[in-house]
Design a protein around this nucleic acid. Sequence first.
DNA 1: TCTATGAAAAAATGTGGAAAATTTTCATAG
DNA 2: CTATGAAAATTTTCCACATTTTTTCATAGA
Lengths: 185, 185
Amino acid sequence: MSNAVKLGQDIRALRKARKMTLEKMSQQLGRSVGWLSQIERGLSVPTMEDLREIASLFDVPLSLFFGTTEAPENEQGRVVRAAARRQIGAYDSGLVETLISPDLTDDFEVIHSTFKPGAEIAEITKRPTTEVVYLISGTLDLWIEDEKYTISAGDSFRIRGDSYRWANPYDIPAVALWVISPPVY
Amino acid sequence: MSNAVKLGQDIRALRKARKMTLEKMSQQLGRSVGWLSQIERGLSVPTMEDLREIASLFDVPLSLFFGTTEAPENEQGRVVRAAARRQIGAYDSGLVETLISPDLTDDFEVIHSTFKPGAEIAEITKRPTTEVVYLISGTLDLWIEDEKYTISAGDSFRIRGDSYRWANPYDIPAVALWVISPPVY
DNA sequence: TCTATGAAAAAATGTGGAAAATTTTCATAG
DNA sequence: CTATGAAAATTTTCCACATTTTTTCATAGA
């Protein structure tokens, strides 16, 4: 599968996750629907400038659109090496999120999250999703619907449409695997 | 939510994962459809003997049906502590699988797998699922459609309906988080 | 009295067809 | 050679109806 196709599929997945139509997206970008359709199917390749605008529209780092390229031929779409994970959602500097899934086209997303010491989520989050999180290392404070939990390495939790927030008041990073369905990125 | 309801929901999830109807399941158990319906909704509680037969029918350990009980009230259905994970799929002694998800009722399942040194899967597996796996520690040899990969801690891989098999020829356990959608247990 | 059954009622799921929405194609202007 | 925009194609969304599956509940049996 060509890089253009893979790139297009990721863009399509990002759009779908936001329940946006080609029409709406093309309006926001000031481009035609036909053009976007071609981009998403890899029949045409967007310029760097286009990509920058798409990344901005979806609030993901531009770098998300690269890195697919780098894996060896036979690992493409199957294996993601630890060092080659793509970064997403660079909103919060206290939280680093990288993509475990090879791309965004599945029914769920798996994200590797590192919560730095002292970091705290900016605002209470509530999404129409099911999220299961496994804490690989560190400790994390978590509130689900005002109920507080302290999560230690090896513990896991699930959020199903409830509001939640987190904080890492401890002095080591908390590292988690975060599974979200349906995709939000 | 009462224990009877939770138990019933897990039983229903197991049945659904196998695309079985109440009718078919009740035949296999030699019980009535109405009775099963009541069990699955927690209106009635199966005897230990019933449970044993259900576990056997689904090829899961009887212990899967316990342990939900033990978590503190406010953690039920939300938090699964490392020490309280329930074991599933006890087929292969070289592989220990425990449930990260609080129950089986989600669109996907998250499983904590430990592949013991020297262990190897008995037969090639092929399922109509998407599976994303993250290796927490150790090393694992993996074959997807005859292509071999050596997966190290921090790496991840995805299987989408392809056949695969694995082996741990190394001398330390490989520990992985396995996400499967739709559920198979 | 309590439990499981089986038939009736209710609910959920599947089907086919038509309309609407979305996406793809492609001739053409820039 | 690239992007546009209108036409064509495809996909999605409703319905109405049939079928399947699940739930309810009166009753027989323990």
